[in-house]
Design a protein around this nucleic acid. Structure first.
Lengths: 347, 347
DNA sequence: TTTATTTATGCAATCGTTCCCGGTTTTTAG
DNA sequence: CTAAAAACCGGGAACGATTGCATAAATAAA
């Protein structure tokens, strides 16, 4: 079932003009008489003429659409970031095509191929937690294709990058727990491949060290799928809580899904937060205040990250000359202290 | 910054063939010798040729992209529905362009114009809570443009529709509360414009009536913005709980955002659930089990709704003849009973 | 009146692809 | 050995819009 749109030809025919005249009249060219312009514009309005963006794309070799690859849109951080992206993209006449990797490297590659074949003008990506090899991105990048990384950035590629100060987030969280009397603090971290994981681990590490607390490698468990799978988190927490010589009294969860699955685990084991085990999690859920105990969180400015990222991308796309100077923008995280990070039980 | 792709012309020139031959060889036409085909296909593979989808769209008068309009993607129901939509769309070679109305009628119209100007092949829409006038949709529909409604369907338009049995959902929820001894059950409902609201109210109504509980119009409050604004919910609950002759002992929240904002209100007023006030909410959050008390919910099969909707849409798009028979598919909701719907306090 | 200049318009190429029409060969049949 | 039929391939129009160039008419200057 087709729906026939009116074209410039229809106008030309109806008005006894050539298509070039009509085109020029509509773009308000100086070479067209005011009279003709008026006639054309009025008629175009009357029959509700809209230029065909596909024809324009073909001519101009640009689609005015940009691709986004994230692991999951049903994740508060990413849906908020996408909101930020959209808010700017719309204003600038770009549309966004969203693809989900579901934390799978393979699907990320598939998505990329798909988006490339849809001739997007640029890419916004937060890599999957499985992504270690970057050839798929390097290939595009080498050919001058605009790519901006957000949140999960990749160091080995010279592009614009937008993220949050993960080091500080983890450092602050750890310090807060220490201040509340916790000495054995475990961390449930995301995929080891991700730079954000490394930074968060480093922040945690430094905070311990700054408070003369020895670092125990057994206190960190990595989850390749970033908490997407409950089983993964269950296994990690099992190890941390029950197979350790010094049982932690507090846990830091370093990603949205990890945080919720930690809570789920504690609930299943009937562990009281924070008396049995305290916690702070990275989370952008707007529901953490409703949990009981209410959850202390490190929150990322997701909306702003999205906005900054798309602005950089569009700037690069619309640049005439190849971009050589790339920016790396780091926004501050926000720590919200509530009940879950409280003091440990006094025995 | 441009990135030059290889075209069929490049292949033709390199191989000393015409573009028509190359085109045909690539599409495995019978008029091309096996030998030539082999040469062309191999060379194309070697230089990594990809057909330009924009040129194809122009020729075929279809973009292979479909538009989605929802109120908010940062809403578990919709992000799950979009997941369902994408899962099918990708397989069938369509991409989706997502737009958010943020529950605003005006923005819905803007989005629609934008999507139409991006020459989408079809539209999937869940109307905004402000949408009462349907002219913008009727216009498109009259011109034979494929539209499928999901979740928030609109009765006055003959198109495919996919939703959930809202009547049953509300009926079951109400019945459950009655079974637990509640006699004064209030409802915080969404926008009165929406058919889903009407259906949910009707189910609630019928359940009361079936249990010989008189219906009190003061026990229902409507929220135009569907719970998006906390103030709205606050006001509604204030009326229900404190300005009523018979104070309700239980509340039904008829949408995702209403549910969470109800909880937020109860928390702010220090009301214990379910002893002070019981509740069941429509919600697709995958976190409701973690709340304490854990939340009893009516859950919609969001993913499936998305899948069914996109399947109907693609079927209609790819139909040669105009569609005349439209389907209305109603999926069953799922009631998950947890703690929040429990018995009232015994005084 | 003749030439130069301005003004207003049309022609045709272009973007990448498909496909209708032809046009050569080569093969097969009579 | 010729006519018909395959088999194979190229030319060019088309999709909708833009744009450099050509052209015509109208006006201005000489």
């Amino acid at each position: 079932m087709k729906y026939e749109a009116v074209t410039i030809k229809d106008i030309a025919k109806a008005l006894g003009l050539s298509t070039s005249t009509v085109s020029r009249a509509l773009r308000d060219s100086y070479e067209i008489s005011t009279e003709t312009k008026k006639i054309v514009i009025e008629y175009a309005q009357q029959i509700n003429y809209r230029p065909n963006p596909i024809a324009l794309s073909l001519k101009e070799k640009r689609s005015r659409s940009i691709g986004i690859i994230v692991c999951e849109i049903a994740n508060s951080f990413f849906s908020q970031a996408i909101n930020g992206i959209e808010s700017i993209a719309y204003d600038k006449g770009y549309n966004v095509i969203i693809a989900q990797s579901h934390e799978s490297y393979e699907r990320e590659i598939l998505n990329l191929q798909y988006l490339a074949s849809r001739s997007i003008d640029g890419l916004l990506i937060s890599v999957s937690s499985e992504t270690e090899n970057l050839d798929h991105l390097i290939n595009l990048h080498k050919r001058g294709f605009p790519i901006v990384f957000f949140d999960r950035v990749v160091e080995d590629l010279a592009t614009h990058k937008v993220g949050v100060d993960n080091y500080k987030g983890a450092y602050d969280a750890t310090t807060e727990l220490i201040k509340n009397g916790h000495q054995n603090i475990a961390m449930v971290a995301g995929s080891e491949f991700l730079s954000i994981t490394k930074e968060r681990v480093a922040g945690y590490h430094q905070a311990l060290s700054d408070h003369q607390i020895p670092f125990d490698a057994n206190q960190i468990e990595y989850c390749l799928h970033g908490g997407m799978l409950y089983e993964e988190v269950e296994k990690a927490l099992g190890k941390l809580l029950y197979q350790n010589t010094n049982t932690p009294s507090a846990v830091i969860a370093s990603a949205d899904k990890l945080t919720t699955n930690c809570l789920r685990y504690f609930k299943s084991k009937n562990l009281q937060v924070p008396s049995d085990i305290a916690m702070i999690g990275f989370s952008n859920l707007d529901l953490t205040d409703l949990l009981s105990p209410s959850l202390s969180v490190i929150r990322q400015p997701a909306f702003e990250i999205g906005q900054v990222a798309i602005e950089l991308l569009i700037k690069q796309i619309e640049n005439k000359r190849p971009t050589t100077e790339f920016e790396k923008i780091i926004l501050p995280p926000q720590m919200i202290i509530r009940e879950s990070s409280g003091a440990k039980k006094i025995r």
